[in-house]
Design a protein around this nucleic acid. Structure first.
Lengths: 152, 152
DNA sequence: CCGCGCGTCACCCGAAGGGGTGATTTCGGC
DNA sequence: GCCGAAATCACCCCTTCGGGTGACGCGCGG
């Protein structure tokens, strides 16, 4: 980021110098003022657009035959649960919790241990989750949960 | 996109007009020329950056109380399977295929239909997948498969 | 040619998951 | 104080899943 600012400053300086040069050589004419202004405007706008794109576009780096692509980390992709989906589906906090455990690949027994409840309770919750998600299997529930942004 | 170009043209025109006005009113001084140029440069660079960002930043649209957010499709996040992991685990193409079906939430029967093989075959494959991934359940296999970049 | 990896299919058995129903408790709101 | 939502637990029944084993055909490489 700082690199970009420095780069921009450098480019700007060079451009100004260049324009000054051009001005003194060929544009010392009547109305050169307007042309000069338009020229500056156009060039800097272009540079600005380029810079704006640079700031948000991924970069591709080639490293020892391995292509590494810098991904735009739009705020480290911190997971944010889609509250509207949750509400629309009527999922309770506990049910979401069990869904997360399921997505982690835990068995009913393991979930029961971690959630400090009986296996029957876990089964009840998971049944409700499957029902509310319209899923017939845990794997399907997980798939839908991820698609609906209910779980990471 | 075309909208942006038009918008930019309009803004540019207004700015030029504004600057002309300012120039005639207060900047008819010695050396106003450089100031004027710098001003144009700065403003248009800013506009350019803003425009550049606008072109690549997600947009939020409010529709009948429903907020729809355009998500930046970062090069559709093309999935690239980690071939080294596949080799390290000794997973065959068919097994990976079945793993994908499992991740999609399909049952053994459904997978058998889509893969045009018997349920028994699917069970054999899925058993091998679970074995090779060190998983005890399908959900766990999916979780590990994703973690190891074997499946999207 | 023979072995090996892969894909295919079968059968069995026990474990796990899923569907349905009913019941109790707890807690916050009306 | 009653109601409803949420959470808890139980039991039954059936399906699915997972583990184990065995077998067959095909193609490739030694």
């Amino acid at each position: 980021m700082r690199r970009h600012v420095l780069l921009f400053g450098l480019v700007a300086g060079l451009l100004i110098a260049l324009l000054q040069l051009i001005e003194y050589r060929w544009l010392v004419l009547a109305h050169s003022f307007e042309i000069y202004g338009a020229l500056i405007a156009a060039i800097f706008a272009a540079v600005g657009i380029w810079l704006g794109l640079r700031l948000t576009t991924p970069k591709v780096v080639v490293q020892e035959t391995v292509v590494v692509q810098e991904v735009v980390v739009e705020a480290p992709r911190e997971f944010v649960r889609d509250a509207r989906q949750v509400e629309a589906l009527g999922l309770t906090p506990r049910e979401l919790e069990i869904l997360e455990f399921i997505a982690a690949g835990l068995s009913t027994r393991e979930i029961a241990e971690r959630a400090h409840v009986s296996e029957n309770t876990v089964k009840t919750h998971s049944s409700r989750v499957l029902d509310k998600l319209g899923a017939r299997r845990r794997t399907q529930a997980v798939e839908r949960g991820k698609a609906l942004r209910l779980i990471p």
